[in-house]
């Protein structure tokens, strides 16, 4: 996984609430068995509207997305994170995120930053109004600045932060606990009342 440290980039505002993962990547692209190549299908239906932000040349190359509350709600499809990442987004800023999407984003090196709603609105407005608007997101410093007076800190789960900073493979981390797992499992296998199959 690619590590996330500090990113300075253009910003695409997506001033919509409850953006669900069906919109991020519609169902017809979930039939593929690959993990790559989803970027061209990002926001597939919304992109058909010429006025949609992704079609606006001024946001071309933006690696930071700012969106309304409850971004990533609905389906657990990790294809949503794959599509965002494959398209080039490395950071999403919003006031709240759905739980499963939050986890999926982290596993793909996408930093999700949670800010108060007023600050998110400020960023949405500035990105929409100022040509060439850029933000610097530092995970090392836990700060976001725009060079135009906007500067804020943000909080993030320390372990999530550590994994993103180091680009760590989750499974590898769990395998450090193989001893504890073997011990637990040996004992737990006797609990037939929570075994999938009747003994």
């Amino acid at each position: 996984m690619q590590a996330f440290r500090t990113l300075t980039s253009g910003v695409m505002p997506l001033d919509r609430v409850n953006v669900d993962t069906d919109q991020i990547i519609p169902k017809q692209f979930l039939k593929r068995i690959e993990r790559t190549g989803y970027g061209e299908f990002l926001f597939f239906d919304w992109r058909k509207d010429p006025a949609f932000e992704l079609n606006n040349p001024r946001y071309k190359g933006a690696e930071i997305l700012v969106a309304g509350k409850n971004f990533g709600c609905g389906s657990s499809r990790e294809h949503a994170a794959w599509a965002l990442s494959d398209y080039g987004f490395r950071c999403v800023i919003g006031s709240t995120f759905a739980d499963i999407f939050h986890s999926n984003a982290g596993k793909n090196g996408i930093l999700l930053v949670t800010l108060p709603e007023e600050q998110v609105q400020t960023l949405l407005d500035r990105a929409a109004k100022n040509d060439g608007y850029r933000l610097t997101v530092s995970l090392e410093e836990n700060t976001i600045t725009d060079g135009q007076g906007f500067s804020t800190g943000f909080s993030i789960d320390p372990f999530r932060r550590y994994c993103l900073l180091e680009g760590l493979d989750d499974i590898g981390l769990t395998l450090r606990h193989t001893g504890a797992l073997d011990t637990y499992e040996k004992q737990h296998d006797a609990a037939f009342w929570v075994a999938p199959r009747a003994s």
Partner: peptide
């Protein structure tokens, strides 16, 4: 609870999940 595909792989490999 529902999980993403990276977590599916995690459970396949370890029968565990790191969870807050």
């Amino acid at each position: 609870f529902g999980i993403g595909t990276s977590e599916v792989e995690h459970v396949m490999a370890t029968q565990c999940l790191p969870q807050s």
